[in-house]
């Protein structure tokens, strides 16, 4: 087999004549300082980019967002509290109104009752007066009836006596009738 002549400038410790790696490229000492140098540059650049620009910015954004959320929550709590207060006030007003209505109703009821009582009393008094009056009239009527009976009795007695054919003394008859009626 004809081996190609090794190209001296290509072949080295790490690369064979065909441009392939010999062994692990990771262990090739020739390539290590280069990587370390550029790695350190890279890390320094990333560190400054992150610590000077990116991380403070993200931290401030997160803090701002946290602040906004906290504010919103407290505002919502404030509104909730207000709503609760309003509800309580409404409830109180409703209760007050109810109580007042109760009072007014009670008062009205009492007034009506008082008026009614007064009217009843008045009516009672009137009725009593009327009754007394009637009683009086009745007594008078009764008394006059007794008188009439007496007069009728006297007249009847006189007529009976006359029918018997004897004329009687008027005064004697009156006395006799009166005497009889008392008895």
């Amino acid at each position: 087999m004809a081996v190609e002549p090794i190209q001296e400038e290509m072949a080295g410790i790490c690369v064979d004549a065909h441009g392939s790696a010999i062994g692990m490229p990771q262990l090739c000492g020739e390539w290590i300082p280069n990587q370390i140098f550029w790695l350190i540059i890279t890390l320094v650049v990333i560190f400054f980019v992150l610590s000077r620009i990116a991380l403070p910015r993200i931290a401030s954004v997160l803090a701002e967002r946290q602040g906004t959320i906290t504010n919103d929550i407290s505002a919502a709590e404030e509104l909730k509290r207000q709503a609760k207060d309003a509800e309580a006030a409404y409830e109180k007003a409703l209760a007050d109104a109810r109580a007042e209505a109760q009072t007014i109703a009670q008062k009205t009821r009492d007034e009506i009752k008082a008026k009614l009582d007064a009217a009843t009393a008045e009516a009672d008094a009137k009725i009593a007066g009327k009754a007394a009056e009637s009683e009086k009239v009745l007594a008078e009527i009764r008394a006059s009836a007794v008188e009439s009976v007496e007069a009728v009795a006297k007249d009847t007695a006189e007529a009976i006596v006359a029918a018997f054919g004897t004329s009687a003394d008027r005064a004697a008859i009156d006395a006799a009738v009166a005497n009889r009626m008392k008895g």
Binding site: C14, S20, A21, M24, P25, E30, W31, P33, N34
Partner: peptide, 20 residues
């Protein structure tokens, strides 16, 4: 050539790989 992908190559020219 599974390890060839890990080779360090200069971007410009074919010279040796120095530190810089």
């Amino acid at each position: 050539h599974p390890m060839d992908q890990f080779m360090i190559k200069p971007l410009f020219g074919d010279g040796a790989v120095g530190m810089f």
